[in-house]
């Protein structure tokens, strides 16, 4: 059997149809990468995400080019005397907000918050979830009972209500938002990892490792962990957009990033009173949020497809 990638202009260099003798053995990671590279949606999503990251990195350049800082209130040029924002034009390419600030510049800076919250909170959630899931699944017994029930409990919490209560007590900030998002997200990862570990730890190679004298920690992190990473990575890519939306929700409710730091959720929240007279106010941060979460979600879907062993859309068998 040899594999062929249909619909691609140039053949995959790792797959040489001409000479069966050169077919190389490839691990699941290489296969996944190969599939991903040839998934058009994944490529477009990836490019979009790179673009978004560049926007975040070069936000100060945008501020420099426009001459508008994200915090400066242009009360005479950016607002009518009655306080109505001005629309897109030469001075303000994407219009101004209710305080006369440049929405283009603020949206670019808001990208930083969203990416930071999305990536850091998701990574934190995954790291905690992996450790907890690994520990619970590997040790079993009382440890498992306590950890697994804890995860169940966290999953059953009404997260938004609790987040509001928690932030009311400790006060809003980006760090608190990230901690809240991570806290409410780690359990789903933990449960997946625990389930995987429960089955993997019964495999012969674990027994082999143990008989060779490997300790618990080594078995957990060297032998088991690499085998559960694929679903974890899939979950991570899907968690990022969820976290971005979660952060935007918190900021929308005034529980996230403290103003005047621009965040998309905060901007959307401010814009709700103005949408009838200032469409750009709601549209610009809304589109930013939409494009970013869509890109991450589609990439996440592609990553999941790429790792799925039952997946057979791109690779067809040929006699």
């Amino acid at each position: 059997m040899k594999l062929k990638i249909p619909g691609t202009g140039s053949p995959d260099p790792t797959v040489d149809d001409g000479d069966p003798a050169e077919i190389q053995g490839r691990g699941p990671w290489q296969l996944a990468w190969a599939r991903l590279r040839h998934d058009r949606v994944a490529v477009i999503s990836g490019i979009t995400i790179v673009g978004i990251v560049l926007v975040a990195i070069f936000a100060p350049v945008v501020a420099h080019l426009t001459g508008h800082s994200p915090f400066t209130q242009y009360r005479t040029t950016g607002l009518s005397p009655e306080g109505i924002p001005v629309g897109p034009g030469r001075n303000f390419l994407l219009g101004t907000d209710s305080l006369g600030r440049d929405i283009l510049v603020r949206v670019c800076y808001g990208t930083r918050i969203s990416l930071l919250a999305g990536v850091v909170a998701s990574s934190l959630a995954v790291a905690v979830g992996v450790v907890v899931g690994l520990t619970a699944g590997f040790f079993g017994g009382a440890v498992d009972t306590v950890l697994a029930r804890t995860m169940d409990a966290v999953l059953s919490l009404p997260y938004l209500v609790l987040a509001i209560a928690l932030i009311s007590v400790v006060g809003p900030s980006l760090l608190v938002s990230i901690a809240v998002i991570a806290f409410f997200s780690f359990s789903s990862v933990g449960r997946i990892v625990r389930g995987q570990v429960l089955s993997i730890k019964e495999k012969e190679f674990i027994e082999a490792a143990r008989s060779l004298g490997a300790g618990n920690l080594r078995i957990m992190f060297v032998d088991i962990l690499p085998n559960v990473l694929a679903p974890v990575i899939v979950y991570l890519t899907l968690l990022v957009p969820a976290s971005i939306v979660f952060e935007a929700t918190l900021s929308f409710l005034g529980l996230g990033v403290v103003p005047p730091t621009p965040s998309w959720g905060g901007m959307l929240s401010e814009s709700t009173a103005w949408y009838q007279v200032a469409w750009w106010y709601v549209l610009v941060p809304g589109l930013g949020l939409l494009v970013t979460t869509l890109a991450f979600n589609l990439l996440g879907d592609s990553v999941r497809d790429a790792f799925d062993p039952r997946y057979n859309r791109l690779f067809v068998s040929e006699s």
Binding site: T72, Q73, S98, L99, I164, P172, G254, P259, P260, E270
Partner: peptide, 23 residues
């Protein structure tokens, strides 16, 4: 919006401002 307006004016006048949200 009022808090951010105050902040801008106070900073221009030589004060530092920490916004504390009551939620």
């Amino acid at each position: 919006a009022v808090a951010q307006t105050d902040e801008a004016a106070l900073q221009a006048a030589g004060f530092a401002v920490t916004l504390v949200a009551a939620t």
